[in-house]
Nucleic acid binder design. Structure first.
Length: 276
DNA sequence: AGAGATACCCGTACGC
DNA sequence: TGCGTACGGGTATCTC
């Protein structure tokens, strides 16, 4: 499941492959990918464009094109890119293929078809992202006060608040659990009930969990891969995620699993004791 | 009214 | 061998 570290890893791999290249042909074979825009219209609009940048905001990839266009890509659950020095091999799950002017092909593969491609005018990108996303967790705007503002007065579980992309951009199910473990906060704690020192610890924990994920080039569960097909290694670093019954790396107590905000949630019932 | 909770989309893996 | 169910990001739509 690509979260911020996985998307950032994809961005870093895609950047040298795409920037400066011209798209010579584009095929989008799944209408869902660009819905409600017809996929043929998006493909036609991509052809002839040169890629100027590959950016990221939260879990969105931003492929900057000439003529003031930006392809906004969200990988959702199972989206991934492939980079091929020649023609890409046949694959029933490939939903789009771009042929570049250096003879390479870039494929977009998405088993469950939740991913989206949205072609926007450059001027519309910031407003589009601003209404969906809070601060970038690795940037200057994300400090203890920003997180406090996002959690203040909210009666929902702190984990649900972390999964809300308007609180902080890019945290998904894995890194929310890892951050709460690092901060020793129970996932069901009411967001607005956290004291200032808890919020400060959580802010640092979110940042640390995401930075570790980026250093490990993401987590590979089932089929996440970077564009060269390489797996990440973050899954070997999980402290709690997916580890029900295994000993907590800090205190040895068995990791528990519950459901929060409809998501599987793993935590240590001893170090992350529920208070108040 | 506004926040929070739930259903939905989808294909695969898994358990019985 | 086959069938039902869990999974989950973002969004639409419900509820209280």
């Amino acid at each position: 499941m690509p979260e911020l570290p996985e998307v950032e890893t994809v961005r870093r791999r895609l950047e040298p492959v795409l920037v400066g290249r011209r798209i010579e042909a584009a095929a989008i074979v799944d209408e869902r990918l660009t819905r409600p825009e017809p996929s043929g219209a998006v493909a036609a609009a991509l052809v002839g464009r040169r890629v100027e940048s590959v950016g990221r905001r939260g879990k969105y990839l931003l492929v900057g094109l000439d003529d003031e266009l930006v392809l906004v890509v969200h990988l959702r659950m199972t989206g991934s890119f492939g980079h091929w020095p020649d023609r890409a091999p046949a694959d029933p799950h490939v939903r789009a293929t771009l042929a570049l002017d250096d003879g390479c092909e870039v494929t977009y593969r998405d088993v469950r078809r939740f991913g989206t491609w949205l072609l926007l005018d450059a001027a519309d990108v910031e407003p589009y992202l601003a209404e969906r996303l809070g601060p970038e967790p690795l940037g200057r705007a994300f400090g203890p006060r920003a997180l406090a503002r996002a959690l203040d007065g909210r009666r929902t579980a702190v984990k649900a608040a972390l999964l809300d992309q308007r609180s902080v951009a890019g945290v998904g199910n894995i890194y929310a659990d890892e951050a709460l473990w690092r901060a020793r906060i129970h996932p069901l704690t009411r967001a607005g009930a956290l004291a200032a020192p808890d919020v400060a610890r959580l802010q640092r924990a979110v940042r640390a969990a995401l930075e570790t994920g980026i250093r490990r080039q993401g987590a590979t569960l089932r089929d996440y891969r970077d564009p060269s097909g390489a797996a990440g290694s973050m899954q070997d670093e999980f402290r709690v995620y997916g580890r029900e019954g295994e000993p907590c790396p800090r205190c040895g107590a068995p990791i528990a699993k519950i459901r929060v905000a409809g998501r599987g949630t793993w935590f240590c019932p001893v170090c992350q004791e529920r208070r108040a």
